[in-house]
């Protein structure tokens, strides 16, 4: 039952998109880009890329996060190519560090500079239920309770979780989740830690 509800949750990610689909924009995207540029006049040079969407985000915005089949496939292929894998071939790091980064929302806001010795967080709890112990969790993403247990702790599932955390658009184009690896929000090592939180048999996620 739980497994079914989880799979249902996964299917929901794909299904949510049509539910919130907006009408395809009739406004000239170049005009919008210019408006955004002038709305953030104090943005330093190295922040300029933040103002413009890449091709994938352009397509997601244009189709209200519900792209037609051909665009869907093009995004999958493009985003899959961004995924870099751990050099040691292992997908599980230290789940305790994963729990810490799941709690932390630090990083990349204009008040987070200079970051000093603080590292970026994944802020996973902002959107996901993850452990029973943490009751302050958001509901934009599906619950991840018993994530590894439901998948019998399979190695292939650990790899899939790594890929999803690195870049979810490779499997679910126009998902709301940040591309943590592809956008360099988290390091490969941190993504392994997040995967360990989900997939380690001794992680509180699976207790």
């Amino acid at each position: 039952m739980r497994k079914r509800s989880f799979l249902l949750g996964t299917a929901l990610i794909a299904a949510i998109s049509p539910a919130i689909a907006q009408q395809k924009s009739v406004v000239d995207p170049a005009r919008i880009d210019a408006m955004i540029k002038s709305a953030f006049p104090t943005a330093p040079a190295d922040w300029q890329p933040r103002l413009l969407p890449d091709e994938t985000m352009k397509q997601c915005s244009a189709y209200g996060n519900s792209p037609p089949k051909d665009v869907f496939a093009a995004i999958q292929a493009r985003e899959k190519a961004t995924i870099q894998y751990p050099a040691d071939g292992k997908f599980l790091g230290d789940w305790k560090k994963g729990e810490a980064l799941a709690q932390s929302g630090f990083g990349l806001r204009f008040t987070d500079y200079p970051p000093g010795n603080r590292v970026n967080g994944g802020n996973c709890y902002a959107c996901h239920q993850i452990t029973k112990q943490e009751v302050s969790y958001g509901t934009i993403g599906p619950s991840l309770l018993e994530y590894g247990k439901l998948r019998k702790f399979a190695e292939a599932e650990a790899k899939a979780a790594y890929e999803k955390t690195y870049n979810l658009h490779a499997s679910f184009p126009c998902s709301l989740m940040p591309r943590f690896g592809a956008n360099k929000v988290l390091t490969i090592e941190q993504i392994k830690e997040a995967v360990a939180l989900l997939m380690s048999p001794d992680s509180p996620v699976n207790k």
Partner: peptide, 30 residues
């Protein structure tokens, strides 16, 4: 019309748009 387009426009290192958080009922951040 421009506001409606801005509301769905995704960019930045988290790929967020206004719709990331405000396009559905009953959702929460934490």
């Amino acid at each position: 019309a421009l506001g409606a387009a801005l509301f769905v426009r995704r960019s930045g290192p988290f790929d967020f748009a206004c719709t990331t958080c405000h396009a559905d009922s009953g959702r929460r951040i934490r």
